[in-house]
């Protein structure tokens, strides 16, 4: 098997160098296709991660009664009852108690002027309920319907939440269809270029077959050539992406806006690996499939 592999490699390399212009054309096609795909994957996963982060900020607030808002102030027992009810819900990730004093502190940070003029603390104690998934806020709120005793109201920012979720859904859809389209387009583009280059050499295939080459003997070097083209093209694309990431991105976008640790694109090595593997596969399969019709001699 080893001498055969070496022979294929020699054949492939000599064919690459003697068909340099088509090889360069195919490599450039891979480069462009994979660069765009990589850019889109990076951008797309970053946007998805950002929408996820926004979704994570969706919470359900359960405000307890004070003697001002209801007839009776909420009791310790009622607070505990509601906690155990909330914790038992499968959608709930975390329940955080915020006393009225803490609420005032938070409010003071946000609007100091408003808080300073208050005679007493009007803010109720509350539970901040974090769901596993942002989409579940309405379900959790529905579990507290009708409002249990001791609770003044349940609020999850219905309007904002619905809008955030809708936008997130649209963005997710765009990213998904976009990357599918781009994958399809680059596969078609690359395999079409390979097709053309093999089509130009179909006479060569015919001669090889008439001299007594087996199908695999013809196919081997061609597929290897496709792999080499894919490898070089995608590696160039990865290099270009690194340049784009290090140079362009840091200058275009303000750093602090990007420095949210919870928001990140798919890790770069993973993107690079995806691109290289995709091009290798398309290179090999594209050559192999295109050759099929010319091998029927």
């Amino acid at each position: 098997m080893w001498p055969r592999a070496r022979l294929f490699l020699q054949e492939a390399l000599s064919s690459v160098s003697s068909n340099l212009s088509t090889t360069i054309a195919a490599t450039m096609t891979v480069l462009i296709g994979m660069f765009l795909l990589g850019l889109f994957i990076a951008l797309g996963t970053w946007v998805l991660s950002w929408t996820n982060d926004v979704k994570r900020q969706l919470v359900v607030n359960v405000y307890f009664c004070t003697d001002v808002t209801c007839e009776n102030e909420v009791s310790r027992g009622q607070i505990e009852d509601i906690r155990s009810k909330l914790v038992s819900l499968p959608q709930v990730k975390d329940v955080q108690f915020i006393s009225s004093e803490e609420a005032l502190e938070i409010q003071r940070k946000r609007t100091p002027a408003l808080v300073d003029n208050l005679a007493s603390n009007p803010l109720p104690a509350s539970y901040k309920v974090t769901p596993h998934k942002g989409e579940d806020v309405s379900k959790i709120a529905a579990q507290l319907e009708p409002v249990p005793p001791g609770v003044e109201k349940v609020n999850y920012g219905k309007k904002e939440a619905d809008r955030v979720l809708q936008v997130a859904k649209i963005i997710g859809g765009i990213v998904l269809t976009g990357s599918l389209l781009l994958i399809a387009a680059s596969i078609l583009l690359i395999s079409n270029t390979i097709r053309l280059s093999i089509f130009a050499r179909r006479r060569e295939v015919e001669v090889m077959k008439l001299v007594g080459a087996t199908n695999w003997f013809v196919r081997g070097p061609f597929m290897l050539e496709g792999i080499i083209t894919g490898l070089i093209g995608s590696i160039l694309a990865v290099i270009l992406l690194i340049v784009a990431k290090e140079v362009a991105l840091s200058k275009i976008v303000e750093r602090d806006w990007l420095s949210n640790d919870d928001v990140s694109a798919l890790s770069f090595p993973l993107i690079a690996l995806t691109l290289v593997l995709t091009s290798l596969l398309v290179g090999a399969a594209g050559s192999g499939i295109t050759l099929r019709r010319f091998l029927r001699i």
Binding site: S15, S18, N19, R203, E204, E206, V207, M208, K209, L210, V211, G212, A213, T214, F217
Partner: peptide, 23 residues
């Protein structure tokens, strides 16, 4: 069909248009 290459290896062929590999 898999034996056709064997057949052709035992059969020389010469054509009007030579059918050489041009590169």
């Amino acid at each position: 069909r898999s034996k056709v290459p064997m057949l052709r290896r035992n059969m020389g062929c010469v054509f009007q248009d030579f059918k050489l590999l041009s590169n």
